[in-house]
């Protein structure tokens, strides 16, 4: 059963005599454990979608199901399955961190004797244990963001809706949020996260959707998407020797490979990994059938070329984003 299911969702805003179609027949299906990256330019309709799932906004048409519950008919029950972090939010800053969490735990009718355990668990998870007795006011912005995340976790919701949880944070705080999201992922939660910071999304999202002017333009697994959109998959190859021969071979496979070349600079596979010596790294674009790029590797190996690595570098989501969106706003 899908944890989140949107069918033909539409939202029309009426401001005076103007009408604005913010969502146009949006469909989405998230399974348990999915981490869905919801990407789109400003004004695309991300916040609108998230608010509708969170039952804080009524759609003009369409259906929303959360964990099998019709969110329009039983908003209260649906909310119980959701942890929601708005894009803009405030905190009660004149109380202490644990009092803040205790208030939300009480609001979720968690019995008094179970609350201290839950509070220390969520504080631990969000790395705020040392701030337990501090006033919320004294927290930095990144800490407040984590406190808000801690608050959304007190009732252990299976679905999390996070509207730009890392916006306005410095790189370090963003990494902390990212680590936290990985932990939530490991706990098996279904997470929908909207963000503008694209490189971060591809690292832990197993699905992404790109929305523009209220329409889901593309949706699916990051790598497959990239190939579908671009029509090719870039591959980096390192050989022990005979780079020239490898290049020649690649040039002989025009139906699978285009623009093969030998990289001029030293190539580093990843941060801290060993450097591949100059002249031993090749790059090409694979244009054959999806998921059959091994055929190229097979041919090289059979020809006696000593291949040390063969991999697809991180998909450049930013490039993908620029390709599919037109920069138009609803």
């Amino acid at each position: 059963m899908a944890m989140v299911e949107l069918n033909n969702l539409c939202k029309v805003y009426k401001t005076g005599s103007d009408t604005l179609t913010a969502l146009d027949n949006l469909n989405l299906q998230l399974e348990k454990g999915d981490i869905f990256g919801f990407i789109g330019p400003n004004g695309a309709g991300k916040t609108t979608t998230i608010k509708i799932i969170a039952t804080l906004l009524l759609p003009s048409a369409g259906t929303v199901r959360v964990n099998g519950v019709d969110a329009l008919k039983e908003p209260g029950r649906a909310r119980g399955f959701i942890g929601y972090m708005p894009d803009f939010f405030g905190v009660y800053d004149d109380i202490k961190v644990w009092e803040y969490l205790d208030f939300f735990a009480a609001a979720y009718k968690i019995p008094k004797d179970r609350r201290p355990g839950i509070i220390s668990d969520v504080l631990e998870l969000t790395d705020l244990s040392v701030k337990k007795d501090a006033y919320v006011e004294s927290l930095s912005r990144g800490m407040k963001q984590r406190l808000c995340l801690a608050k959304t976790l007190v009732h252990d919701p299976p679905v999390m809706l996070l509207d730009e949880p890392a916006s306005g944070l410095d790189p370090r705080a963003r990494i902390e949020i990212r680590e936290l999201l990985k932990e939530l992922q490991a706990m098996g939660k279904t997470i929908l996260i909207s963000s503008h910071i694209l490189p971060e999304m591809e690292e832990f999202c197993n699905k992404i959707g790109i929305i523009e002017r209220g329409k889901m333009i593309v949706e699916g697994d990051v790598k497959t998407l990239a190939q579908n959109v671009r029509g090719y998959q870039s591959i980096t190859l390192t050989v022990k020797a005979n780079a020239e021969q490898a290049l020649h071979m690649l040039q002989q496979m025009p139906e699978l490979v285009q623009t093969p070349s030998i990289c001029a600079e030293n190539h580093k596979i990843a941060e801290g990994s060993l450097q591949m010596p100059r002249g031993c790294t090749l790059q090409f674009q694979y244009i054959g059938p999806p998921e059959e790029e091994y055929a190229v590797l097979q041919a090289l190996v059979q020809a006696g070329i000593q291949v040390r690595s063969f991999f697809t570098p991180e998909t450049d989501l930013e490039d993908l984003f620029m390709r599919v969106t037109k920069g138009q706003v609803a």
Partner: peptide, 13 residues
């Protein structure tokens, strides 16, 4: 005004 109402309304209270 301090943007806490939405989260308050989101609780089962």
């Amino acid at each position: 005004e301090q943007q806490t109402l939405e989260m308050l309304l989101f609780t089962p209270l």
